[in-house]
Structure formats: structure tokens, C-alpha cells
Amino acid sequence: MEVKLADVSVVYTRAGEPPRKALNKISFSLKTGEAVALLGPIGSGKSTLLQVIAGLRPPTSGQISVRGQDGPIVLSIQEPHRGFFAATVREEVAFGPENLDLDPAETAARVEWALTAVELPRDKWTVSPLQLSGGEQRRVALASVLAMKPRFLLLDEPTIGLDGPGEEALRRILARIRTETAISYLIASHDPDFLYALTNRVLVLVDGELRADTTWGDWAQQAARVAPDLKLPFLLGLLHRLAAAGAPVNTAPATPAAAWNELSRLCRERVKEGIG
């Protein structure tokens, strides 16, 4: 399955205000199996882009086409837990599949799978979602989109409001679901560390324009020039500062594991020098 955007623009018009271009001639494509980060300053058009891909907002101009569709494209909006309405967690998660007209047995199986996948303890499945902690509510919200078995899952700021352990749990869950299913992710976030751990391709929006479509390693090389206000993942930023101080390190590791290897190697060499 492939989603292709060609020259997609979105213009917002409001009475009494000049029209505002939220997206300007965006072209790229997403393929099944990819995990893509969407970076950009606040107001750069990230949420608008996700809404366009999810089919919730028609572009003002340009085309969006889907080839070989074998599953839905589902958007999980910002702070999704604020929209809870069902009496129990189980009913909340069942709402999506029920609206896909699935038979009750299939719906029940999906609810079971999704709530297990997000690691929500079984004794919480029958309580009101509003009784859960913030971290648990976010996992219920994730389960409710997973239960629709999306091919492409679009996530808008999934880590907002989560604490350290909550974010780590979400990261682990999303990584595991990706290895277990053929799901693809497009994740918009202000948290570059979260994105670096989960994705292997980077899209960068600035003022509604696509300024980069590249790998993490390459993004680290051009970030300062293209979007100086955007933070690099901590490990990539650290390697850059070390290189600037003269340390012999690779500043473009494609994954956090590769970045850790660089730092560990440097550390070992320092220890060796210390002994020598």
C-alpha cells in the first residue's frame, strides 16, 4: 500500500482575515512498513498534514492518492483521551470496530488483542476509562485506534502529558506492535528522542513547506541550517558537540543504538588513554 501526496496545499480562510497557507505544495509518499517522523515548529502545519492524509481535511489544491489499500488509515489526534465517552474501557475500544460493521466475535477479538497489545491489566477493562491514570488513559486511546487494524497509524503528539515512565512504556509498545504487525507509523511530535527511537525516516515541515525528507543521520547534518529552532535528539546533539570539540566521533548514526555505540567507544578510548 502506498499513500502519495502531489503538490498538496491547504489554505485556511477566515472572515475578516487574509487567507493563511497552512501547507504549501507538499509532495512525498509513504509505503507500508515505514516508520516516519514528522518534525516541525509549532504552527508549521504538522496537524493539518496528518488530517489531510487521514482524509479528514480535503486539500485546497493538489492530489492525494492511495494505491493498493489493504487497511484503514487512522489518525490518533492530540490528547485523544479527552474524547472518551463510553461507560467501560472495553466499550470504548469496541466503538471503532463496531463502526466498521464487523461481526461481534471479530470486534471482541480485536478489543482483546488491542488492550493486550497496549499492556493494560485485564482488571481495568471493565471500569470507566475516566477512572484510569493519565498514562493508562493514553494506552486505552491507542488501543481504540489499534482495534481498527490500521495499515497506517498517524499519531499527533502522542507523548504530550506523559511522564518519563509513561513515555517509555508508549515507546516500547509502539516498537513491539510494529515488529508484530505490518503497521506503518507517521508520528508528529516535539520530542525528537521519542521519534529517533521509533522511526527511520524524517520529514521536516517549516512554515507549511517540506524542508527535508531524509534519514536521521543526514538530518543531524543539516538541521542547524534548515531549522535551527528544532531540537536534535539528545544523543545526536551530543555527538555534534563532541565533534565540534574535536572528538573523533561519527555525527550521523542512523539509530539510537548506533549513537550509543559511538559514545561507548569514545568512553572506552578515554579510559584506555587514562590507563596508558
Binding site: 539528545f234 546533539g237 551530543l238 558537540r241 563532541l242 570539540a245 578515554r270
Partner: peptide, 10 residues
């Protein structure tokens, strides 16, 4: 902080 880490590592 990051500056202190850089100077410890290099």
C-alpha cells in the same frame, strides 16, 4: 548538563 558531559567525555 550537556556541557559538563561533553567535557567529561572529551
Amino acid at each position: 548538563n550537556e556541557s559538563e558531559l561533553v567535557s567529561v567525555l572529551w
